[in-house]
């Protein structure tokens, strides 16, 4: 290895991206827990923690710009850095979606839930796991794992459709359910978006490893 300083910088970049990723992963789980348990304090924590993620994104962005300016990365290094640039954008958006869910928790407050939340936590668990797998596939350059996200995204999309249908029946039954029903529909939509972002991560991993473009969210 002839460029040890450069290699160290690349390794450090990967580490920071992982750090950002695991923080975001935690945010998904905390936000949905806050919703299910109607825990406003936890929701506030999610909102506050988002600032850390935003700062981290800017720091990583600077690291990347510095690497491009000073090291002129080429070939796979270039693809790794380009993928990193896109990955942090998706991670930041996922973080924002978690904040959106936490804000829903605050909006609903203490009013009784119109139905026990079953599918939403399930969806959150799958989406969170997809994020974890996307990050694993990035670190291990595991294309198969990245590709497997497409099928999981289909499951999430199916759950989303099912949740919308179910909430519609609650709202049709009783117009008083419309306010909270709409909020929960948004939550389902946020989770569906999170899963989409993880497929973007997977696409970037595939590009990084193979230099080929592949759509995981058809």
């Amino acid at each position: 290895m002839t460029r040890s300083h450069y290699q160290n910088a690349l390794d450090a970049l990967e580490k920071e991206i992982l750090k950002m990723g695991s923080l975001v992963e935690e945010q998904i789980s905390l936000s949905v827990t806050s919703l299910a348990k109607q825990d406003s304090k936890l929701a506030q924590k999610v909102i506050d923690q988002d600032d850390i993620i935003d700062v981290l994104e800017l720091e990583i962005e600077e690291q990347i710009l510095k690497l491009i300016a000073t090291q002129q990365p080429m070939a796979k290094d270039l693809r790794r850095i380009a993928a990193g640039f896109k990955i942090i954008t998706d991670l930041e958006r996922i973080g924002d979606n978690a904040v959106d869910i936490a804000k829903t928790t605050l909006r609903i407050g203490n009013e009784p839930l119109i139905k026990p939340l079953i599918d939403i936590p399930r969806m959150a668990e799958i989406a969170q796991n997809m994020l974890k797998e996307a990050l694993d596939s990035y670190i291990n350059e595991d294309i198969e794992l990245a590709q497997s996200l497409a099928a999981k995204d289909d499951i999430v999309d199916g759950l989303h459709a099912q949740i919308i249908r179910e909430l519609l029946t609650y709202m049709l039954e009783n117009p008083k359910n419309i306010k909270q029903g709409t909020q929960l529909m948004f939550v389902s939509r946020y989770l569906e978006r999170i899963a989409d972002h993880t497929t973007n991560l997977g696409e970037n991993v595939i590009y990084l490893v193979t230099a080929e473009r592949q759509d995981l969210n058809e």
Partner: peptide
């Protein structure tokens, strides 16, 4: 070998 050369990992 091309990859190694252009990314500066040659040798």
């Amino acid at each position: 070998r091309t990859e190694d050369y252009i990314t500066g990992r040659f040798g």
